[in-house]
Design a protein around this nucleic acid. Structure first.
Lengths: 344, 344
DNA sequence: CTGAAAGCGCTAACAT
DNA sequence: ATGTTAGCGCTTTCAG
């Protein structure tokens, strides 16, 4: 069922059919109606390859997610609601969102090169930006519209949105210091992902503001998952003088951390103060309740979509906000896990 | 940078370039080398739309996941490792996997119609099959290669793989009966998703085998997430005579269920027996440890990919296994949550 | 308002 | 072993 078949069926030219379907003005309303009805009846849908080849656009946006080993089974939690938000914006512009799944055994830059070269998508959302991210320079060079979810030290002018890791660090440290803590540990990703640096910098700055000396021993590196949290707790327990508090920078870590502490008879909120990262469906069911930070992932997705569209010539008139470089605030959700000395 | 540019640059015809790049035999090894080198140097990647239009294939497989409201933030956990497995197979055939994100506000069938009509993908993996799934009849009718992750009552002959819900029900019931339970509740999805029916049927059959009368009151419907588990526990607590055991059919439910029971002073493994569904990174950190079932999602993904490829003319010679209709076994992982009367 | 035709990038059939 | 060319399905001039 090609446009040719449809035209033949209606006994008009394919040009007219095309114009009718694409809402061009110079077509008889009656003809248009006939075309629309026939298209629906016969289940005609234009072949995307044909359109793309002619127009040079695919009407598809790619959201590149790496299922890294460390986040293989937890990353999905985060992205689904983000997708939902992105999609709600794209829908209005007849853009489809596809998740580009870069396997763990493929280099992200190579993968991206293939996707871009094939002209598979009109624009990209990349995530898990590293400190120095070759994808960014590549996309800038190739002039492919994109937005980064996550900052990077890579030079250049491009839109990005990132979570407020330094804000989380500042708020958490200030809060813990206020509660009397001085030995505050942090659990950060072991990888080169940029958020680890941002968070750690914020942490150091916050310590300085509170007049606390930075102790490298208190920086515990682990995978950003439950297992990693378990190890962070183990690391704390192993220190000659255990830190009295810990701040995590990944939502999944709290689960494992709680577990390890329970095994050691240490109760969060009684024996140790814990500040988690993102409030999640899982963390919400921890006991005692976890002090953490709330973020609307759907709204984040919406903003990501807008940031991307505002850089795409075909859509920028709808989103005249200029290049978006945004640190997304997170809202403290006080729980019981960081209020010590109150009994259980 | 089109094939034309590349040919011009090398001062040979585009036909030869194409053949060289596609590994055809009738091309001078020396010429091929020149072409490959130049392509790499200039960063040439064939335009997928051009290829697709010509060949009628896109070399892309779509994995359709619905971010339904109830599984919006937890579903990702399940799929990521599956993707990983699928991809490991596709890689060998130069097929790319993309996740097709059907938004919550779009009808899955409509979405599928669009994707298929546009010829966006060569094949499809669909998930979350419903009891009666219009997508299946649609794909059969259009002769689009696909495999369903999940069974359906929809008639027709198509490959599918599904988890062994009835096996889980049988094993769990038998185990609980062995431990002396008679009032065994189940927590099942409130939606029309097929697994709910399969599981419930298996449950009834297992009860009958143990000579236990089926009590509709013991079937608790809830969303397949943490909140749903919380509600299942609430439902149990509300019964005049609380069931002594419960079997869940979703991995996320256990988290909320545990929480609700703790709030009520009820300890899983002491006051009530709990059998969870899939062992997950989260459930592994529950305390007391959850009796649940293990499955290798990566292997599941591999099998899904093979099931799909075995129905695609271009690949079936590599996968001569015929149509796959497979109930995927799950392995019991005994925990402490269903062994009562042992004290804590 | 509609039809005719060019051409997007590519591959495959055919010619040399 | 290489060059030439038709045509995949579509949109968009350009004529009329």
């Amino acid at each position: 069922m090609s446009i040719r078949d449809l035209a033949r069926h209606l006994d008009i030219s394919i040009g007219t059919v095309s114009r009718a379907l694409n809402g061009k003005s110079d077509v008889n309303p009656e003809t248009r109606e006939r075309v629309l009805v026939a298209a629906k009846k016969l289940g005609y849908v234009p072949n995307q390859s044909g359109r793309s080849l002619r127009q040079g656009t695919t009407n598809t946006i790619g959201f590149m997610i790496e299922s890294t080993i460390e986040s293989a089974d937890s990353g999905g939690n985060f992205f689904m609601p983000v997708f939902e938000g992105v999609q709600s914006v794209f829908r209005r512009h007849h853009l489809d969102l596809v998740a580009l799944l870069c396997g763990t055994d493929e280099d992200p830059a190579t993968y991206l090169n293939r996707v871009v070269g094939r002209r598979f998508v009109d624009g990209l959302i990349i995530s898990a930006t590293t400190r120095n991210d070759p994808r960014i320079s590549f996309l800038l060079e190739r002039k492919i519209p994109f937005v980064a979810l996550g900052r990077s030290a890579t030079r250049g002018s491009y839109p990005w949105i990132d979570l407020d890791f330094e804000g989380v660090a500042a708020t958490a440290v200030a809060r813990l210091v206020h509660f009397g803590h001085r030995r505050i540990a942090i659990g950060v990703p072991a990888s080169d992902i940029n958020l680890g640096y941002v968070f750690q910098d914020g942490y150091k700055r916050a310590l300085k503001m509170s007049g606390i000396h930075f102790d490298p021993e208190l920086v515990l590196r682990a995978h950003s998952n439950e297992e990693g949290g378990y190890q962070v707790a183990s690391g704390m327990l192993a220190q000659k003088q255990m830190p009295t508090a810990v701040i995590l920078v990944n939502e999944n870590m709290a689960i494992g951390l709680y577990r390890r502490f329970y095994e050691a008879g240490i109760h969060p909120g009684r024996d140790v103060a814990v500040v988690g990262f993102r409030e999640s469906t899982q963390s919400r069911f921890l006991s005692p309740t976890l002090t953490c930070f709330r973020i609307s992932l759907r709204d984040l997705g919406i903003k990501l979509a807008e940031a991307l569209l505002s850089t795409m010539p075909a859509f920028m008139s709808n989103y005249p906000q200029g290049r978006i470089e945004l640190v997304w605030p997170m809202e403290l959700v006080p729980g019981e896990s960081d209020r010590l000395w109150r009994g259980t």
